Simulated scan of single mutants.
Amino acid sequence: MHRLALGLIAGLVSLPALAEEVPVTPPAATAEATMTEAERKAFREEVRAYLLENPEVLIEAMDVLQAREEEAALQRDILMVSTHSGEIFNSPNDWVGGNPEGDLTLVEFMDYRCSYCRKAYAEVEELIKADGNIRFVVKEFPILGEASLLSAQFAIAMRQLHGDQAYEAAHDALIALRGEPTPETLARLATDLGHDPKPVLDRMGSPEVMSVIQANHILAEQMEITGTPAFVLKDMVMRGYAPLETMQQFVAEARTE
C-alpha cells in the first residue's frame, strides 16, 4: 500500500480530541499537497480501498476520539467546579437539606415544571435519607417558561420571609402541584402552608428574589448546564436525570476519591 495512505490512517487514530483545540496537520496531508493530480487521485483511491477493506480502523479512530473528548469534558467540569465552588456549594441564597454536616454535598439545579426533576425528587429523597451523610443544596433554576418562574419566585419568597422550614414545605408542595401555578393557586398554597399570601405574592417579583434566580442562571451558564435536573457532586457534574442506582454509584465513587 502507498506509504502516505498508511500515514493518513495512522493520523486518523492519533488525532487529538477536538476539545483540546490543538491544530494538527498529519504528515500525509502535507505530503499530499506536493503530489501531482494523478498521484493525488491514486493516493485517495488507495485510502478509500484500505478503509473499505478495514472499516474497524474507523471504529477504532472514533473510539479514541470519543474517549479523548470524554476525558477533556471531565477535566473541564473539574476546572469549572473548582473555579465556582463557593457559589455552587455555599451560597447563602440556597436552601440546605439532608445532613448539614454531611461528608459530601450534592447540589441540584432544578425546575418545578420539569418532569424529570419530579421523577428525580423521590429518588433523591431516598438517596439522602438512606445515606444519612449527604448535605443537599437546591438551586432554583427555572427554564421552562412563566410557570417555572412563578414557582421558583414563590419558593424563594417563602424562604426569605419565613425561613428554611417554610421553603422546604413550599418546595415539596410545588413538586407535587399538578395544576398551573397561577397567583390564585399560589395564594391558596401559601394559606394552606399557614402563611398570609399577600406578603409572599408581593415579594415574588422583588429584586431580592429575582437576584437569586439571575445568579443561578449565570452560574449554570458558567457551568455549561442548560437543562434540568443537573447535579454537582464533589468535582463531578451530572447533566440530566439519573436513576437511584446510578446516583448511589456516583456517591460511592466520590467517597473513594
Rank of each mutant, 00 (worst) to 15 (best):
M223L: 15
T30M: 03
I175K: 06
G179N: 04
R68N: 08
V137F: 07
R239S: 06
V137G: 10
T83E: 13
A220W: 03
G145H: 09
D192Y: 08
Q153L: 04
A5Y: 11
L104Y: 00
A31F: 13
L193E: 04
A157K: 03
A170C: 06
F89Q: 14
V47Q: 11
P55N: 00
K129H: 12
R239W: 04
Y116L: 14
S91C: 03
D63K: 14
I59A: 03
K198S: 13
I213L: 15
M247P: 11
P16K: 12
L15A: 15
A157S: 13
E224W: 08
P100W: 03
T228D: 03
S211E: 15
R113G: 02
V251S: 09
F89E: 01
I128T: 03
A120W: 10
E87S: 14
A147M: 00
R113S: 02
G86W: 13
P199F: 13
L6H: 14
A190S: 12
L15W: 05
L52W: 02
V22D: 07
M204S: 07
I9H: 11
E108R: 04
Q75D: 10
C114N: 07
K119F: 07
E71D: 14
M35V: 08
F109Y: 14
E45H: 13
H162K: 12
C114I: 07
Y50M: 01
R203V: 01
L174D: 07
P197Q: 03
K119M: 12
E208I: 02
E53K: 15
D131I: 08
K139S: 05
R48P: 00
E20F: 11
L161Y: 07
E208H: 01
A215T: 06
R239E: 01
L174P: 03
T30Y: 03
T105V: 04
A173S: 14
M210F: 01
R135A: 04
I143Y: 10
L79W: 13
N216R: 02
S91P: 04
E123D: 08
Q153T: 06
A28Y: 09
E123G: 12
T226H: 11
K119H: 05
E184Q: 12
A220T: 06
D196V: 02
V200D: 04
I9F: 00
Q66F: 12
F136L: 09
F89L: 12
A29H: 08
F43P: 09
F89I: 11
L161K: 01
R203E: 13
Q248E: 13
V200F: 07
E70N: 09
T191N: 05
E184N: 06
R159N: 09
V237R: 15
M204L: 10
Y50P: 00
I128P: 02
Q165R: 09
E87D: 15
M238H: 09
P199C: 10
E108P: 07
E45D: 14
P16D: 05
E221K: 12
G86P: 01
T256C: 01
G7H: 02
H2W: 04
V57I: 15
E257I: 13
C117M: 06
S211C: 00
V47P: 09
E180V: 11
G145E: 10
T34W: 12
R239L: 01
Y50T: 15
F231E: 02
R68S: 10
D172Y: 02
E21R: 14
D77T: 11
G11F: 05
M62E: 06
D172G: 00
A220V: 01
L244C: 03
D111M: 08
E208P: 04
E253M: 12
L74I: 09
A67G: 01
A130Y: 05
